[in-house]
Amino acid sequence: MTSKRFVLTFPPESTGEPITYNLIKRFDIMVNIVKADVSPGKIGRLVMEMTAPAKVLKEGMAYIRQQNVECEPIEKKIHCNEELCIHCGACSAVCFAGALKMNRQTAELVFEPEKCVICELCLKSCPLNLFSIDID
């Protein structure tokens, strides 16, 4: 499974096609709308996260573009300033993706960025503010 965030830009003359509905129904893509700013007659923007196997994600992107809607992936990475980490574990409390875990033996934080789904919850959970978002 791959999770990626996309910015969708709708032209003012958008077709009104239920894009998110179709992504879910037809492509079986998990869709999570992060931010929406769409109003009739104006350029609309939608930030959403899509989770699906990489191949299906590509098909989904192609479908969105066919509807005359721009679809740009957001290339983001969560960065942890591990050198300053005190291994308290507060960030592991919110990381459902399992990217942040405590090693039982060493009592150290283990960060596996490849498991991160960029939910961003750790950003506010580290009492030392050690997480940041890198935008490629």
């Binding site: 005190i86 291994h87 308290c88 574990g89 507060a90 592991s92 039982r104 009592a107």
Partner: peptide
């Protein structure tokens, strides 16, 4: 410390807030 407790039959993930590493 195992990473999971059970409350009313439901598993709940656990996380520490104090640092055992630095305490050691």
């Amino acid at each position: 410390f195992s990473g999971e407790i059970i409350l009313e039959g439901k598993k709940i993930r656990t996380a520490p807030l104090s640092s055992v590493k630095v305490a050691r």
